[in-house]
């Protein structure tokens, strides 16, 4: 029998790994993949907890999660593609047009 805590810790590990991917990788696609890994960490938590409490809420939550992720990802991917189309940009470092203008000294 798998203790709930073990599942939760594995889920936490997945979550942290996804986070690390986002923090380390500079490519937009990789970042989106990291996002998926994070969401899957959350999904694992929900499923494991659902089994522990023995009700369907956990699974329903996970289904909603998948729907939401799919919707979000679809729009995000389109935006990434637009960035590529317009600026030939695939890396996040190149998307830094919006920032505080620090060239000028404050008055």
């Amino acid at each position: 029998m798998i203790p709930l805590t073990h599942s939760l810790i594995i889920a936490a590990l997945l979550f942290s790994l996804g986070l690390l991917i986002i923090l380390l990788r500079r490519e937009l696609l990789f970042i989106l993949m990291g996002l998926e890994v994070m969401f899957n960490g959350a999904a694992l938590t929900a499923v494991a907890a659902g089994q522990y409490w023995n009700n369907a809420d956990g699974q329903v939550l996970t289904i909603f999660l998948m729907v939401v992720t799919a919707a979000e990802l679809a729009v995000a991917l389109i935006l990434v593609w637009l960035a590529y189309e317009h600026f030939k940009v695939t890396q996040i470092d190149m998307l830094t047009q919006l920032k505080d203008d620090t060239r000028g000294e404050p008055p």
Binding site: I22, L23, L95, T96, Q97, K99, D100, T102
Partner: peptide, 13 residues
Amino acid sequence: SATQNGLLTRYAL
């Protein structure tokens, strides 16, 4: 203001 450098990774960090 220097921290607001537009770098998404920084924001996530």
